[in-house]
């Protein structure tokens, strides 16, 4: 292994460790949160960070640290679920279109083109507006456009390998279309599409936080980073910590996952 590749591997390990820390914090939020994230206390409104309330309190006297931790759970779970569903739907549609081609391919790819013609957030706001508030509405709103990226990528990879001799050999060994798609094409393209999914985590997180910020994501009193920033901006000058800490959480998490996606992609380019 070359020195450059070794260095890249170390970068992947470091990024993975940080990503795992974020995931573990999100998963154990209920256990490590120092206070009940939804417990209000009029006596503790907008308290500055202190030893007891490390990130201070918000306008309703709720512990900001506990809410940031609780928000991590919702933000990460909804992001991973959305990316995973979009990935699965996209890769399956992409492989079917790439392998079989024909009219179904034409129709699905034109739909994908249509989705890509508009900025993702504009479509998401419109769809989320129609569906109303709630995290599932926000996920559907973002997912409607997200699968197209995975589908196009999976389709192009499928097109590039579907005429390889090993696919012909599999056909001559009696394998049908579905057996070839899931037995040969999927294992050979999944890594490339998965790396792309990794780079989508940060973008999705921003999307979900953005919709929550606009009131189209999670509903009160559930903590979510975007909605916390939205709530806190009304009294930004009085209690800036209510906005600053969830914003820092978003920035750090996105940097970690984008960095992980980038280093994994770079490592694969070295192969």
């Amino acid at each position: 292994m070359s020195k450059r590749k070794k260095r890249q591997k170390i970068k992947i390990i470091i990024a993975t460790i940080f990503a795992l820390i974020v995931v573990v914090v999100g998963a154990l939020a209920n256990f490590i949160a120092p206070h009940d994230p939804n417990a209000t206390n009029a006596m503790l409104m907008r308290k500055a960070p202190s030893a007891e309330y490390l990130f201070g309190t918000d306008n309703m006297g709720r512990c900001v640290l506990s809410r940031v931790l609780d928000g991590a759970r919702i933000t990460l779970a909804s992001t991973f679920l959305l990316v995973a569903i979009s990935f699965l739907v996209g890769i399956i549609i992409g492989m079917l279109c790439g392998y079989y081609g024909g009219i179904v391919d034409t129709i699905l790819m034109r739909i994908a083109d249509l989705m890509l013609a508009f900025p993702q957030m504009v479509v998401a706001i419109a769809v989320a507006g129609i569906l109303g508030g709630g995290i599932f509405g926000a996920m559907i709103a973002l997912g409607i456009t997200m699968w197209t990226g995975f589908a196009r990528l999976a389709r192009s990879h499928t097109l590039s390998i579907k005429n390889e001799p090993y696919i012909t050999a599999a056909k001559l060994n009696g394998k049908n279309g579905m057996q070839i798609i899931f037995g040969h094409i999927f294992p050979n393209i999944v890594e490339n599409v998965l790396v792309n999914a990794l780079t989508q985590i940060g973008t999705t997180m921003i999307g979900l936080a953005g919709l929550s910020f606009l009131g189209l994501g999670v509903t009160a009193p559930q903590a979510e980073w975007g909605s916390m920033i939205s709530e806190g901006r009304a009294y930004l000058q009085l209690a800036p910590w209510v906005v600053i800490f969830p914003a820092i959480a978003i920035i750090i998490t996105i940097i970690i996952f984008n960095y992980l996606g980038d280093v994994v992609m770079e490592y694969r380019r070295m192969d």
Partner: peptide, 24 residues
């Protein structure tokens, strides 16, 4: 008739030997 059926009576040896096997 497609290769799924012709494979019962004919097999192919390819120019690209490496490419004729699934790399995974």
């Amino acid at each position: 008739i497609g290769p799924e059926k012709t494979g019962k009576f004919l097999q192919m040896i390819f120019q690209d030997a490496y490419g004729s096997f699934d790399p995974r």
